[in-house]
Simulated scan of single mutants.
Amino acid sequence: MNVSTLENQRVKLSLLDLNNYKHLLDIAKQPHLVYYSPSKIDTPEDLKTYVKTAIDDYKHKTAIPFIIFDKQTNSYAGCTRFGLINWKNKVLHIGWTWIGTQFHGSGLNKHMKFLMLQYAFETLEFDKVEFRVDERNIKSRKAVEKLGAKLEGILRKDTLMLDGFKRNTCCYGILKEEWNDIKNGVFDGF
């Protein structure tokens, strides 16, 4: 696991660590940024705890967390990660993604996801990439579907949210054998 940077003409994903996460403090304060997540990031202490957890998972080879730099605006935009990495079964999740509201709808997310999917399938040679999305988060569900991911099922009341609500989680997946068609269709021109 020697990845340090994934990069294209629009975005640079670098390993998230305790030296660079402070670039995200102002973004993490934006209201409702992670409304559909069981994570709390809106205070400096909460964000640091969130990052420490991601770093710990990286050390245990179960996650690869990234800080997102938008080259178009020359600014940090948020973070994302590979998580729940199962090296034996060659399955991982892409998630824990949040970007500032000023980046929503800008195409940044699509560029990030392309880099991550390409790395997962072409470099790591994994067999499957999964996405888990709160059933109520229609915007994120549509974004994942636009990437070519297929809804595989819904886990009912499986995640406890900060407000005590038990959410249903939509499970999406992309298989390695689907990647070339997705790359040539959804990401044509990248």
Rank of each mutant, 00 (worst) to 15 (best):
D26N: 14
K183L: 04
K71R: 13
R10K: 15
G148H: 04
N19M: 05
Y21Q: 02
E45L: 12
T159A: 06
W98D: 07
F121N: 08
H93D: 13
N20V: 01
N184Y: 08
Y172A: 02
G107L: 03
H111S: 12
I55T: 04
K142R: 06
N2Y: 03
K139L: 09
K113M: 09
F82C: 06
L155D: 12
K40V: 13
S39N: 15
E125V: 11
Q118K: 15
T53W: 14
A54Q: 12
H93S: 07
N20R: 02
L108P: 01
T5E: 10
G164K: 07
Y35H: 11
V144P: 14
F190C: 05
S14F: 05
I182K: 01
K150I: 13
S106A: 07
I55Q: 08
D181I: 03
I85D: 05
T49P: 02
M112Y: 00
T43P: 14
G185I: 04
I174H: 01
Y119F: 15
H93K: 10
S106P: 07
N168H: 15
V3Y: 05
L92S: 01
A77I: 07
E178Q: 14
R10F: 15
E125P: 04
E135L: 11
Q72C: 04
G185A: 10
G164D: 01
N74R: 14
P38R: 10
Q102G: 00
A54M: 14
K71V: 05
K59L: 08
L84E: 06
E122P: 14
K71F: 13
